[in-house]
């Protein structure tokens, strides 16, 4: 049978205290959780009945192997959630901890796993904090994207810029990354605008639209509307 959130809290508390001290006493738990001794004693009784805790004399409690398993799991959730809220989303530690304490009891294993992966993905980024994340923090602070947004460091250390074709200026060259799904996608593909193809913006029409591009050795004109469906890596 599932444990109530408060019982899970008790297990977690015993485990956390146990990590610091050799033995865990009722009064340690009272202090750790800020509850009354009577409540702790009552809870210990239930947990003992479930075979998760061994309540010894002199006020010492200890977790059974099964209890350790559950407690560790809850503590893991707590840590992950706190980290996610505080370190990634940038929420204050106090709030992050408080929310983690609540959510840890309810979150599904799958969701938690995904968050763990997400954190891992960010932490293992080869260049330290990913640029997009710092952009996010900049965005949090200022409400605006930083000027450099859209640029990232490529493997060769050369600046790579990803944008859409309509944003390219006359004379600029780019390489097609992908074409967004739209009514005209197939037409664009057939005309040779395939991933990897080089495109140069030749000119814009006198009224500002459409644009004339060079691709696969010929001139093609597109409205900016159509060009915005083409993701481009700027090469010069």
């Amino acid at each position: 049978m599932a444990l109530t959130p408060s019982l899970e809290d008790y297990l977690e508390a015993i485990w956390v205290i146990g990590q610091k001290k050799r033995v865990v006493r009722i009064k340690d738990i009272v202090k750790h959780l800020g509850v009354k001794a009577a409540s702790v004693i009552g809870a210990m009784k239930i947990l003992a009945d479930r075979g998760l805790v061994v309540h010894e004399r002199y006020g010492y409690v200890d977790l059974t192997d099964k209890g350790v398993g559950i407690a560790r799991n809850i503590y893991h959730r707590h840590k992950v959630l706190t980290k996610f809220f505080h370190e990634i989303l940038g929420v204050d530690l106090g709030i992050a901890t408080k929310d983690a304490c609540k959510i840890e009891h309810y979150i599904d294993k799958k969701t938690l796993e995904r968050i763990v992966k997400f954190i891992e993905f960010i932490e293992t980024s080869p260049d330290g904090e990913p640029l997009w994340l710092s952009h996010f923090y900049h965005f949090l602070k200022t409400g605006r994207r930083p000027e450099s947004c859209g640029k990232r460091w490529g493997s060769g250390g050369k600046m790579k810029q990803i944008t859409t074709l309509n944003k390219l200026k006359v004379g600029q060259k780019g390489r097609v990354v992908k074409i967004l799904t739209s009514e005209v996608k197939r037409r664009l593909l057939d005309m040779g605008i395939v991933p990897g193809a080089e495109i140069k913006i030749e000119k814009t029409a006198p009224l500002g639209d459409p644009v004339d591009i060079l691709v696969k050795g010929y001139h093609l004109s597109l409205r900016k509307e159509e060009a915005s469906a083409i993701t481009i890596e700027v090469i010069e």
């Binding site: 664009l188 005309m191 459409p210 010929y218 001139h219 004109s221």
Partner: peptide
């Protein structure tokens, strides 16, 4: 009906 302009300039 969309009528895009995707036109070769020969």
């Amino acid at each position: 009906e969309v009528a895009p302009l995707i036109m070769e300039l020969p």
